[in-house]
Nucleic acid binder design. Structure first.
Lengths: 195, 195, 195, 195
DNA sequence: TATGAATGAGCATTCATTCAT
DNA sequence: GATGAATGAATGCTCATTCAT
């Protein structure tokens, strides 16, 4: 067997699950379908995952970890806020565009599968917001941003835009210039649109 | 029997369904529970709704119609864009806050219940975006907004913010000053945050 | 209201029930359909019939009574057996052809609706057989028929032919010359087919 | 475990279904009862049969196939018609008597379960009639039978007698000498009953 | 007498999960 | 580890029947 072909059963199952969950949703995907798509037996899934819910959670967690790895935090000391904001937005959009299926899975249903999962999702969202808030606050401290803005609201605004545009990309299955989009968004927030 | 107490069975079922769907999600709510909560028999639901899916659709459609009625379009001729933007955002946020459960139902799961429903939701979203874009374009024509902005992206930005903050309100079950929030959001977009 | 138009509700229900039972079978016909077809309310049926089963029984009983009335017994003294046999067969076939729907209802499902009904049907069948047996026996006594025949089996043979051809008529919805058919059948039994 | 005892789950389900359908009829038999009687879980039935209807169809088809195998066609060249007729009738009666339950299932309800099934039953009946007609025609050609008989009607008469007597056997649950009965029937048809 | 809104027992079917091989 | 036959709890939906009007 060649290197590339050698995928662990576990990997295969996760891949299959992402594909099917993304396409048909959690509740419309049967464990048997996942097993088939993964070229495994139905029982094999349970060798690696305790339940359907856990398989789903595992996928979300993995996805989230990959985001953390792929989008490195800026060293806040040097980079100007505009640049930081741009990188944050661009990093996320690119990641989501490159992981369409996983993104689709993550954006839907998280709330309805499991109470625990929902709380976890809220926590993740909260952390992102904290990260952005820190960025904004630094900007204010360094005099790059106005002092009269509502930090809380502005941070959330930034956080609102990323999933919305990401959702647009993956749901309508379009391919866009994420760099350009990120520039437009960050500039607009910074500069406003008033004449 | 008093006037107010006299609720049609159909109303009662819808109310019960909204409450349960909102609390436990579509898939975790059994028809029997809805019937019980509505003080009706299981079969009675099927007197009014052909299926669980249709009951869900009916709820979403009703909610959407109410939004259309509650948030009147501005007469674009007179009102300045800042004011229009504020009214749009405020109207939605207030509606969502006042219809928490319905909102919660509408924001989750729409995508996973039914293909048809999903397409309908995308259409509704598209219409909202069109409405906002028209508003922005008018602002540019009237010289209230800069001419170098990307109308498409800016409109979407506005559309992104409303559900995000609405979602925050209903998911965390907090009570906020929607007027203040709307002012902050619209001002920020208009003015930017750059010093 | 004209005479002919004035049909009692009860009649209307029975007519509707015969039509639907005949077309779709007992189990596939809903009480509501019958009510609609009869131009009555669902509850009205229960004014006249205690249950679906009883409505069905009533129909069968009525049909059976009509057969008894329509096909008068022969005065055994005079008529030759060939003639008697012919009249019996012809009478039944004509009746069944003229009451296609009722016949269709009677021939199917009687067995599966109700234990009681099934036993009743067996009794009716037994009576017919007895009647035919008496006819055959008279024929033997009068020297019209051979003495070495098995009266029991021959009677049953006659009884077998009537419903089979009747069933053919109503199931395939064809119109046939019942007189000719009856002649053929009775002659064949009498004469045999051997060269 | 002994050989004989080792019955596949599928066999067990079919056996159980035949027994129950035969006893209580299709509509009065619940899938759960079949499962219990087969010593299987409710879901197991669906491993082998897509639906209740299909389980029923499968049973009928199997029964029909077994008849075809058990009652070999005569080589028309040699055997005299009387013998052929006798063998045909006897073969069927014996088969039906030996498969009482299956016969009971086959004779009732076929018409009311399913449109498709009903058409199939009509087709099967038609084929039998064709087979008998060929037999009669051969008899005429060979000079064994009279030339003035109505082939069509005579064939149908033969076909009418088999299920009638079979039905008598299985419905009243009696044990008879099928050989004797077949002799009587075929002789009667051949010879007639006239003195 | 006539009605039809309301009911709930009853049932076919699904699918996550188990476990013997 | 890997498998898939077997399972049965869970649930959407039907429809005969009731009863207040």
């Amino acid at each position: 067997m060649e290197r590339q072909r050698k995928i662990s059963k576990r990997e295969a199952i996760i891949e299959a699950a992402i594909g099917l969950f993304s396409q048909k949703g959690y509740h419309n995907t049967r464990m048997e379908e996942i097993a088939q798509a993964a070229g495994a037996g139905k029982g094999t899934i349970y060798e690696y995952f305790a339940s359907k819910t856990e398989l789903f959670s595992e996928i979300l967690l993995t996805g989230w970890r990959k985001i953390q790895e792929d989008i490195p935090l800026q060293e806040p000391g040097v980079t100007p806020v505009l640049e930081q904001l741009h990188r944050l937005i661009h990093g996320h959009l690119r990641y989501f565009q490159e992981n369409r299926q996983l993104t689709r899975v993550s954006f839907c249903e998280v709330d309805t599968i499991d109470q625990e999962l929902m709380e976890w999702a809220l926590k993740v969202k909260g952390e992102k917001e904290k990260q952005v808030r820190a960025m904004i606050e630094t900007g204010i401290e360094r005099g790059e941003l106005r002092t009269d803005i509502d930090v809380d609201i502005v941070s959330r605004m930034v956080c609102a835009l990323i999933p919305y545009f990401a959702s647009h990309i993956v749901m309508n299955d379009v391919e866009i210039d994420t760099h350009h989009l990120a520039v437009q968004i960050s500039t607009t927030i910074l500069e406003g649109i008033k004449n």
